[in-house]
C-alpha cells in the first residue's frame, strides 16, 4: 500500500510525519520524493547499499551539418536552442527533454544523448527501506527521478510504502501521488495553513485519491484547519501537538517514534488509523 504525505507548503511536517509513521511500522519503505532538498535521510541515516544515476535525454547536433531552418529553435518553449553562425547551440540545463526538436528536424541531424540529472540512493535503516531521490543543483525538473523511484519493481508492496512528497501542488507532487493508494494532507493551525491545505485538498480531489488530514503544531486555541476539515468532510486522522519535546527531537534529526515512548505510542496509534482508513 502506497501512502503519500503532502502539504501545500514546506515546513508543515511532511517529513516529520512520513519518517515517524515509517519508523513506527513493523517493516516499511520510505521514499523521499522531495528531490530538490531531500532530508528524510538525515533522520534515518541509512546504510546506503546502492546508488543509481538518473539520466534524461538531451538533443545533440554534434558533428552534424545543420541547414539552419530553425524549426527546432522556434518550437522549443523553453528556448533551449539557438542557431548562431550556422551552428546549433543546445543549452542542456534548460532543456526539458520533451524530444520535440528531434521529431521536427526535417534533416534528422539531431541525436539524443544521456545527461545525468541526479541519483537515487537506496539503503536500509533498521525496519525501514529508505529510498532517496537527489536532483543535481540547477536541473529544471526532478520528475524523472521521482518516476524511477516509484516505478521500482523491487518495492515490497506487502508493507506500507510512505511517499514523502515535495511541497506544493505542482507537477512533482502530481507525479509523487499518481500511484498512491491514499493521501495524507498535513496542515498547520493558521489561516495561511488553510490556504495551503486547500491547494493539496483540491489536488487529491482532482486525482480522485482517498485522503485524510493530520493537523500539526496544534495548540489549545481554535484551529482554522480543523474547521476547514469539518466543513469539507475531510477525515482528521490525528493531531500532533505544538510541543517543545517533539520539536527538539526533530531538530536534532532524531526520530521521535524511535527515541520517545510517548511519541512511539502516538505515531503507532496514528499508523493504525491511517492503515484502517486507507484500507477502506
Amino acid at each position: 500500500m502506497k501512502i503519500a504525505v503532502l502539504s501545500g507548503k514546506g515546513g508543515t511536517g511532511k517529513t516529520l510525519l512520513s519518517v515517524n509513521l515509517a519508523a513506527a511500522a513493523e517493516s516499511s519503505t520510505y521514499i523521499d520524493c522531495d528531490v530538490e532538498e531531500p532530508n528524510g535521510l538525515l533522520f534515518f541515516k541509512p546504510q546506503v547499499l546502492e546508488t543509481e544515476d538518473i539520466a534524461v535525454k538531451v538533443p545533440s547536433a554534434k558533428g552534424r551539418i545543420c541547414i539552419g531552418c530553425r524549426i527546432c529553435v522556434d518550437f522549443c518553449k523553453f528556448n533551449a536552442l539557438a542557431h548562431v553562425n550556422g551552428r546549433l547551440k543546445v543549452f542542456e540545463n534548460i532543456c526539458h527533454s520533451c524530444g520535440g526538436c528531434l521529431l521536427l528536424c526535417p534533416e534528422h541531424i539531431l541525436t539524443e544523448k544521456d545527461k545525468v540529472i541526479g541519483k537515487v540512493l537506496r539503503g536500509i535503516a533498521d525496519n525501514v527501506a529508505v529510498h532517496t531521490g537527489v536532483l543535481n543543483i540547477g536541473e529544471p525538473s526532478g520528475i524523472p527521478i521521482i518516476k524511477r523511484m516509484l516505478s521500482n519493481s523491487e518495492l515490497v508492496h506487502t508493507d506500507p510504502i510512505f511517499i514523502d512528497c515535495p511541497p506544493g501542488s505542482a507537477c512533482t507532487v502530481m507525479e509523487s501521488i499518481k500511484e498512491a493508494d491514499y493521501c495524507i494532507l498535513v496542515a498547520e493551525p493558521t489561516l495561511f495553513g488553510v490556504h495551503n491545505l486547500n491547494m493539496v485538498y483540491e489536488l487529491v480531489k482532482l486525482f480522485g485519491k482517498p485522503h485524510g488530514a493530520v493537523l500539526n503544531k496544534c495548540l489549545e486555541t481554535v484551529n482554522p484547519s480543523e474547521i476547514f476539515c469539518e466543513d469539507k468532510n475531510i477525515s482528521i486522522l490525528g493531531k500532533l501537538p505544538f510541543d517543545r519535546e517533539l520539536a527538539t527531537l526533530n531538530s536534532n534529526a532524531l526520530i521521535a517514534a524511535r527515541v520517545s515512548a510517548k511519541y512511539r505510542a502516538l505515531f503507532s496509534s496514528l499508523l493504525r488509523i491511517v492503515k484502517r482508513e486507507a484500507a477502506l
Binding site: K77, N79, A82, I94
Partner: peptide
Amino acid sequence: SQGGAGIKAAQAIV
C-alpha cells in the same frame, strides 16, 4: 517567455 528569455532575446539580436 516562461524560461530561456536571454537565449531567445540573444537569438533575435544576433
